[in-house]
């Protein structure tokens, strides 16, 4: 079963005085149950919009989204939300509330609320401290703790690790890692910190300017693709249809290509997700391949 299915989702925001116009163009992908999917893309690519559409915060203009088997515009979705944990990309708790207050609210909101996990996730944070006086790291941690503490089956996290130091980020990744130890739990996580996603994800989806460029299994993709470093004539040996992007300098060429197309003694290195993202975005190559 798929934990999340997005089918032909379309959403447009009209251009106004305050905001740029923007479009999500017919995005489709699905997240198999029990897997972690990383959502990547440049700023303003539509990641947050997509996540808002999935959670029902914004309404799509077309297409359909099925979360844990329930369409998110249906009435039953209210109950499905019990099995969802959501972390938005901005602080979203009233500044006067303390962690204790949040605990008391959530205890009444979720049927499966477990305050032991909640306080354990918060670690050393003083539970009587007002949210407004939290540090940035603590502010980010609170919604994550809420999302982890009601036995959710699907976590949706919009940049949970942005602006945090490596130690806290590692703790959060650890929490996600622990969370998915159980078979039926899935995670959709967006981030700019690709090294985090490389550690945590099974699938990577890349959105650019409102379009889904690829949605692939991470390790498979990393095994399939290589960074080639060579001279121009050597590159010409490689089948053009197997090259995704090229970056030229005066002293040679770097290109992202399929491993099986690279022959002979051409020097190649393991590609990272960052490479794949950059070359897919920038390496406009005529007749080049797509992932």
């Amino acid at each position: 079963m798929n934990a999340l299915e997005v089918k032909n989702i379309y959403k447009s925001y009209k251009k106004t005085k305050r905001a740029e116009g923007f479009e999500l163009k017919n995005i489709s992908f699905s997240l198999p149950s029990g897997c972690v999917m990383g959502l990547i893309g440049e700023n303003g690519a539509g990641k947050s919009t997509l996540i808002k559409l999935i959670c029902g915060i914004a309404r799509a203009d077309g297409g359909e989204i099925t979360v844990l088997g329930t369409e998110n515009t249906s009435r039953k979705f209210t109950f499905t939300k019990r099995d969802m944990g959501v972390v938005l990309d901005y602080p979203c708790f009233p500044t006067k509330f303390t962690a204790n207050d949040i605990n008391r609210i959530m205890r009444r909101a979720y049927t499966d609320w477990n305050e032991n996990i909640f306080f354990k996730c918060l670690g050393t944070i003083d539970t009587d401290l007002k949210y407004g006086s939290y540090s940035k790291g603590m502010k980010a941690l609170l919604p994550i703790a809420v999302a982890m503490s009601h036995n959710a089956k699907l976590l949706i996290m919009d940049e949970p690790t942005s602006g945090l130091d490596p130690i806290v980020r590692d703790e959060i990744l650890d929490m996600i890692n622990e969370f998915t130890r159980e078979e039926n739990r899935s995670v959709l996580i967006s981030s700019h910190i690709l090294s985090d996603l490389e550690k945590a994800c099974d699938y990577i989806a890349y959105i650019s300017r409102g379009e889904l460029k690829f949605c692939e299994e991470k390790d498979d993709m990393l095994d399939k693709l290589v960074i080639v470093k060579c001279g121009e004539d050597e590159l010409n040996v490689i089948d053009r249809r197997k090259v995704i992007g090229v970056r030229k300098s005066d002293f040679g060429i770097e290109a992202l290509a399929y491993r099986n197309a690279v022959t002979g003694g051409i020097h190649c290195e393991k590609a990272t997700i960052e490479d794949i993202m950059i070359y897919t975005a920038k390496g406009d190559l005529e007749g080049g391949a797509r992932i």
Partner: peptide
């Protein structure tokens, strides 16, 4: 304006409540 001031209105939509509620 309570919800809007803190983005809380967006957050509560993700809790198990309907917009009607």
């Amino acid at each position: 304006m309570f919800g809007e001031r803190y983005n809380w209105n967006k957050y509560i939509v993700t809790l198990p409540v309907s917009r009607k509620q």
